[in-house]
């Protein structure tokens, strides 16, 4: 599945805030966490990252891990410098009024599971 298909799923109520040009990325799983080091350790390339963090440091994490994009949940609006950095780095930032739990559940229902690579990565 591509990120654009996720964006076009009405129930997710997603709004694209940055990275409009990068929506053709292939989504390989998702990960939800608000602790940046936990995301560094457990999220994998191609994952969608669901978080409540909206400051600019989330962009560096997503870029270092080659994530597909970031969903900022809970109706939280990203700061302006977060969006500027995301455009620079080519990281899609999506917002939704839904909670992290609802986003995760709806992504799972779309067939986006936890990435299989995750368990392998945790061991390596």
């Amino acid at each position: 599945m591509r990120l654009i298909q996720v964006v076009q799923t009405p129930e997710l109520r997603l709004e694209v805030k940055a990275g409009q040009e990068q929506l053709d990325r292939v989504v390989k799983g998702a990960y939800a966490s608000d602790l940046l080091s936990n995301v560094m350790a457990r999220a994998n390339e191609g994952n969608i990252w669901i978080t409540l963090q909206a400051h600019q440091n989330i962009v560096a994490v997503a870029a270092l891990l080659n994530l597909a994009g970031i969903v900022i949940a809970g109706g939280i609006e990203p700061q302006e410098d977060t969006l500027l950095k995301a455009e620079e780095e080519g990281i899609p930032i999506l917002t939704t009024p839904l909670s992290s739990f609802e986003v995760a559940g709806r992504l799972y229902a779309l067939g986006i599971g936890a990435d299989d690579g995750q368990a392998k990565m945790a061991q390596s």
Binding site: D34, L35, L36, S37, N38, M40, A41, T51, Q53, H55, N57, I58
Partner: peptide, 15 residues
């Protein structure tokens, strides 16, 4: 509150 300082930095490095 920014999501840092979870006490995972050095353990992540070690892994």
């Amino acid at each position: 509150e920014m999501g840092f300082g979870a006490g995972m930095g050095l353990p992540n490095m070690k892994k």
